[in-house]
Nucleic acid binder design. Structure first.
Length: 128
DNA sequence: CGCGTTTGACCGGCGC
DNA sequence: GCGCCGGTCAAACGCG
C-alpha cells in the first residue's frame, strides 16, 4: 500500500476550501477583513438563537477560565461566518458571544426572543 | 434519511 | 532546535 504517506490526516486536498483564512500573500491584500464584534449577554445557556443556523465545530478549555469555550460556524452557502461563545469565569451567568465575519444571506427567522436578548446584551468592540 | 452534535488527534506558529 | 499552545478538522453516533 502505498503508504507513502500514511501519515494520516492530512491532506485537505479534496477539500479545496478555502476561504481565506490566512494566507499571506504578497501584498495583495484582500479587501475584506473579518469584522469582529462581541456581545455580552446574561443567560443561562450559551445557545442563543439569533436567527441563523450554527454548527458546533469544536470545544476547548480556556486559560483563566474553568469553563470551556465553544466554537460555532454558520451553515449557509457562501456564508463563512464564525461565532464563539465563552462564559465568564467570574460570572457564570454571563455569556460572551463573539461574531466573526459577515452574513451574506438575510435572516428569515428573526427570533423575537432574540430582540429581548439584545435588550440585555452589551456590545463590545474589540480594540480594533 | 439528513443534520447536528461530540470527542480525539493533528498542524502551524512562536518563544526562548 | 525544540517544546508548547491554540485552533481546526475528521469520523461516528443519535435523534426527529
Amino acid at each position: 500500500m502505498e503508504n507513502d504517506d500514511d501519515q494520516k490526516k492530512s491532506s485537505p486536498s479534496v477539500l479545496g476550501i478555502n476561504t481565506d483564512q490566512k494566507k499571506k500573500g504578497t501584498g495583495g491584500e484582500k479587501k475584506i477583513r473579518n469584522p469582529r464584534f462581541a456581545f455580552k449577554t446574561r443567560s443561562q445557556v450559551d445557545i442563543l438563537d439569533d436567527g441563523y443556523r450554527w454548527r458546533k465545530y469544536g470545544q476547548k478549555a480556556v486559560k483563566n477560565n474553568t469553563f470551556p469555550r465553544s466554537y460555532y460556524r454558520c451553515t449557509h452557502q457562501g456564508c463563512n461566518v464564525k461565532k464563539q461563545v465563552q462564559r465568564l469565569s467570574r460570572d457564570d451567568a454571563i455569556v460572551v458571544t463573539t461574531y466573526e465575519g459577515k452574513h451574506t444571506h438575510p435572516v428569515q427567522k428573526t427570533t423575537d426572543n432574540f430582540e429581548q436578548i439584545l435588550n440585555q446584551m452589551q456590545i463590545y468592540l474589540p480594540t480594533n
